[in-house]
């Protein structure tokens, strides 16, 4: 299959500039991030008790967002993940569409690479289009974002448009310094629940 292996090295949007804007003035936003770079990006933007950064469970991020969105229908839930991570759990898209939670937004940082493992191309460097897959899955609001204009338009929709919404942000393939969140999964869970549900939650 033909891969455009150098294409994403030229994309204008940069992940470490996009993610802080996704998380700016986050209010009571609940966040789940996919393993690897998206978790490091969110940490670089500021570790937060109401961000659950995955360190494993590749393919889980969107489904964790769904479970959280169903449990907390009054809170906005944002999933930030990578194209490789999303491709591993594509079935989540029709599952989310079937449940149709209005409070869930899924954002993919699509560098067309498996960044964490050596920048190998993913299928999105070829013909695969995640936003089109989301449309086909039945997600009512789904689009690709290629540039600053698209991002500026999408930011308020990610935060408040009745969902589920799905945005695939084409970002530059680049190797960046790690910014690691706490690694203990039980701690991350307890910290999140205490911040959301109060100190009585264990």
């Amino acid at each position: 299959m033909e891969m455009e292996s150098a294409r994403s090295e030229q994309y204008p949007l940069r992940r470490r500039e996009v993610v802080p804007r996704l998380l700016a003035e986050r209010g009571d936003l609940l966040v789940v991030t996919g393993l690897g770079a998206p978790s490091w990006d969110a940490t670089a933007a500021g570790d937060h008790p109401l961000t659950f950064p995955l360190w494993g469970a590749m393919g889980a991020a969107a489904m964790m967002g769904l479970g959280l969105a169903l449990a907390q229908p009054k809170r906005r839930v944002l999933v930030i993940t990578g194209d490789g991570e999303m491709l591993m759990g594509l079935g989540a898209l029709p599952t989310i569409a079937a449940q149709a939670p209005k409070n869930l937004a899924v954002v993919v940082l699509d560098n067309e690479r498996y960044g964490e493992t050596g920048m190998q191309t993913t299928h999105t460097a070829g013909p695969a289009d995640l936003a089109a897959i989301a449309v086909g899955a039945g997600i009512p609001v789904a689009a690709d974002i290629f540039d600053e204009d698209g991002l500026a338009d999408a930011l308020p929709r990610i935060r408040s448009e009745p969902g589920p919404v799905f945005f695939n942000i084409k970002i530059r393939a680049e190797d960046l310094p790690l910014a690691l969140p706490p690694k203990d999964g039980a701690y991350l869970k307890t910290r999140f629940r205490a911040a959301l549900l109060g100190p009585g939650a264990d």
């Binding site: 609940l30 659950f52 489904m63 959280l68 079935g91 629940r193």
Partner: peptide, 19 residues
Amino acid sequence: LTTEEEGIALLGGAWLGGQ
């Protein structure tokens, strides 16, 4: 679900949200 593993992630998220 489309595959059972989705359920484990779903229920993790549910627990984070108190369900």
